[in-house]
Design a protein around this nucleic acid. Structure first.
Lengths: 120, 120
DNA sequence: AAGCTAATAATAATAATTATCATTAAATAT
DNA sequence: ATATTTAATGATAATTATTATTATTAGCTT
C-alpha cells in the first residue's frame, strides 16, 4: 500500500484504486478508502480537502500551496512555501479560542494545458 | 432572491433553501441551486469551494481568508486581507502559462465553540 | 488444527449536487 | 385582449464521491 506513496501528483482515491488493482486485482475500493484514511491519520500522507468535489491524497506531507485547474480538475504544487505568519503572524488575536490545525492555500484558474488548448 | 444576499455568514444551498421557503414556500431546491450559480457567475455573490463536501455561498465578494471547523463544519471569516503578493508577489515565474483566477486561503481546526465544548 | 481477532470484498446507504422534463409563467407579437 | 413564443420553475430522477454494513476470509495464537 505504501508503495503508492511515490506519487508526484495528487491522486484521487479512484486513481489510486485503479493503480493498486494492477498488482492487487482483488482489492476493493472500500479498502483503499479505509487505508488512505488510516495513513492520513497517522500522518504518513496528507488528505487534501481542496475545492472541487474530489478528495485527493498527497505523499508530500508538509504544508504547501496548490493550484487547481477549474477545467480539468488537476492539482499542481506551487514552488513556494507557506506558513501562517505570512498573514496572521504579527497579530494573532484572531485565534480567539479556536484551535488551529492546518492552513491550505489554493489558487484556482486554468492550468497551462487547459489555458493553451481552449479559450472558453 | 437577492434579498438573501444580506447574510453575515456563509450559508449552504440547503440553508438558503430553508430561508427562502419562508416567504416563497413553493420554491424548489433546484431553483435555488440554479440561481445561486447564476449569481455567482455574474459576480454578485461568491461561491466558496472550501474543503469539506459542502459548497457555500458568500455575499462578501472580495477575497478573504476563512476558518473551517472540522467538527461542526462552520465557516468563519478571518479579519485580515489576503492578496497574491503575499507569497508569490516577488517572483511570479510559477505562473508559467497558467491563467490564475482566484486565491483561497483556508485555516482548519476547531472553532471557539467546538474547542470549548468537547476535547475529542 | 481449533478458536480468536482483525482486515477485507462486495454491496448498500448516504449526501450534495446536477440533469431532466413536463408544466407554469412571462414576454412579445398579433 | 388574446394567441404564440420563450424562458423559468417544480418535482423528481440521476450522478458522483464517499461512508457504512456485514458476511467472509485471512492471519495469529496456542
Amino acid at each position: 500500500m505504501q508503495v503508492l506513496g511515490e506519487h508526484i501528483d495528487h491522486p484521487s482515491a479512484d486513481t489510486i484504486y485503479e493503480e493498486v488493482r494492477k498488482f492487487l486485482p482483488r482489492i476493493s475500493l472500500g479498502t483503499v478508502y479505509r487505508n488512505l484514511e488510516i495513513m492520513s491519520e497517522s500522518g504518513s500522507i496528507l488528505k487534501l480537502e481542496t475545492g472541487g468535489s474530489i478528495k485527493r491524497f498527497d505523499p508530500n506531507t508538509h504544508s504547501h500551496p496548490h493550484f487547481r485547474c477549474v477545467k480539468c480538475g488537476s492539482i499542481e504544487d506551487l514552488p513556494f512555501g507557506i506558513d501562517s505568519s505570512m498573514f496572521a503572524g504579527t497579530d494573532e488575536d484572531w485565534i480567539k479560542g479556536r484551535k488551529v490545525q492546518s492552513l491550505h492555500v489554493e489558487y484556482t484558474g486554468l492550468c497551462a494545458d487547459c489555458n493553451g488548448n481552449t479559450k472558453s
